[in-house]
Computed example of a mutant assay.
Amino acid sequence: MSRGISLSENEIVSYLKKTSLPTILVEGRDELSVYTRYLESKINIEDVDVLPCQGRVTLLNVFDRREEFKHKKVVFVADKDMWFFVGIPQEKRYEEYIVFTDGYSLENDLYIESQFSQLLDKKEIIDFYKLIKELSIWFAFEVNRYIKTGSSQCNFDLHKICPNNVLDSEFKQKINFVNPPQELVDKIYSDYTRALRGKNLFQALLKFLSTQKHSNLGRENLLELGARFRNPRIELLVSKIVQKFQEYS
Results as ranks from 00 to 15, higher is better:
Ile5Cys: 09
Ser6Arg: 14
Ser8Gln: 14
Glu9Pro: 05
Ile12Met: 09
Val13Ala: 07
Ser14Glu: 15
Leu16His: 00
Lys17Met: 08
Lys17Trp: 09
Lys18Trp: 04
Leu21Asp: 12
Leu25Ser: 11
Val26Phe: 07
Glu27Lys: 01
Glu27His: 07
Gly28Val: 01
Gly28Asn: 06
Arg29Thr: 11
Glu31Val: 02
Thr36Met: 02
Thr36Gln: 04
Leu39Ala: 01
Glu40Arg: 13
Ser41Leu: 05
Ser41Gly: 01
Ile43His: 10
Asn44Gly: 06
Asn44Phe: 02
Ile45Thr: 07
Ile45Asn: 02
Val48Glu: 00
Asp49Val: 07
Leu51Arg: 10
Pro52Gly: 04
Leu59Arg: 10
Asn61Phe: 05
Asn61Met: 08
Phe63Asp: 12
Asp64Cys: 10
Arg66Lys: 14
Glu67Lys: 15
Glu68Cys: 11
Lys72Phe: 00
Val74Asp: 03
Val75Lys: 13
Phe76Lys: 08
Val77His: 12
Val77Ile: 15
Ala78Val: 03
Lys80Pro: 00
Asp81Glu: 02
Met82Leu: 09
Phe84Thr: 13
Phe85Leu: 01
Phe85Thr: 09
Val86Ala: 02
Ile88Lys: 10
Ile88Phe: 10
Gln90Met: 12
Gln90Asp: 12
Tyr94Thr: 03
Tyr94Ala: 02
Tyr94Met: 03
Glu95Asn: 13
Glu95Cys: 06
Ile98Cys: 00
Val99Gln: 03
Thr101Lys: 05
Asp102Ala: 01
Gly103Thr: 07
Gly103Pro: 06
Gly103Cys: 06
Gly103Asn: 05
Tyr104Phe: 06
Glu107Asp: 13
Asp109Trp: 08
Tyr111Val: 10
Gln115Lys: 15
Gln115Trp: 11
Phe116Ala: 07
Ser117Glu: 14
Leu120Ile: 08
Asp121Met: 03
Asp121Gln: 04
Lys122Pro: 03
Ile126Thr: 12
Asp127Phe: 14
Asp127Arg: 15
Tyr129Glu: 13
Ile132Pro: 07
Lys133Leu: 07
Leu135His: 00
Ser136Asp: 02
Ile137Pro: 06
Trp138Ser: 05
Ala140Ser: 13
Val143Asp: 00
Asn144Trp: 12
Arg145Ile: 02
Tyr146Met: 01
Tyr146Arg: 04
Tyr146Gln: 01
Tyr146Lys: 01
Lys148Ala: 08
Ser151Met: 12
Ser152Ile: 09
Cys154Val: 10
Asn155Glu: 15
Asn155Trp: 13
Asp157Lys: 15
Ile161Pro: 12
Asn165Val: 05
Asp168Tyr: 10
Asp168Arg: 07
Ser169Asn: 14
Gln173Thr: 11
Lys174Thr: 13
Phe177Trp: 04
Val178Asp: 10
Pro181Ser: 03
Glu183Tyr: 13
Ile188Gly: 03
Asp191Ser: 05
Thr193Glu: 09
Ala195Glu: 05
Asn200Gln: 15
Asn200Arg: 11
Phe202Gly: 13
Ala204His: 02
Ala204Val: 02
Leu206Tyr: 08
Thr211Cys: 14
Lys213Met: 00
Lys213Val: 01
His214Asp: 06
His214Lys: 07
Asn216Trp: 12
Leu222Tyr: 00
Glu224Asn: 06
Phe229His: 10
Arg230Ala: 06
Pro232Cys: 07
Pro232Asn: 09
Leu236Phe: 06
Leu237Thr: 08
Val238His: 05
Ser239Gly: 08
Ser239His: 14
Lys240Arg: 14
Lys240Trp: 03
Lys240Ile: 03
Phe245Ala: 06
Phe245Glu: 05
Gln246His: 14
Glu247Phe: 08
